[in-house]
Amino acid sequence: MTQWLTGILVLIGALLMLLAAVGVLRLPDLFTRMQASTKASTLGLACLLAGTALQLAEVSSSIRAVSIGAFLMLTSPVSTHVIARAAYLMRVPLWEGTVVDEWREDAGGEPEAGT
């Protein structure tokens, strides 16, 4: 029974990672792609770690699994924010369907989509 639970959790995590990779390949601009890739690093890896901790069923490996999960949940927002800020300052083009660009509006520029 535990083995089936492990298999299902691990399969859910792997499917989320595959979906994130497909999103990174198919979405139109950098910022939407970053939104897709976050799914792999949080929920996908958390499911993989939960399945593996159930499979190994030891205290030491469970502690390692929890610490990897906590580390990723803490660092992935930081790295996403830092890349997004650098990319915006480098004037990476936004998707032409972009509706809101609050940074440009706050800076006093014309609210303009698709620059």
């Binding site: 691990v10 792997a14 890739s37 593996t52």
Partner: peptide, 19 residues
């Protein structure tokens, strides 16, 4: 961003290797 995703996938592969 894609290299970051590759790193996460490699960590996931390593976790699966443990399983």
């Amino acid at each position: 961003v894609a290299v970051d995703l590759i790193g996460v996938c490699a960590a996931g592969l390593s976790v699966l290797g443990a399983a």
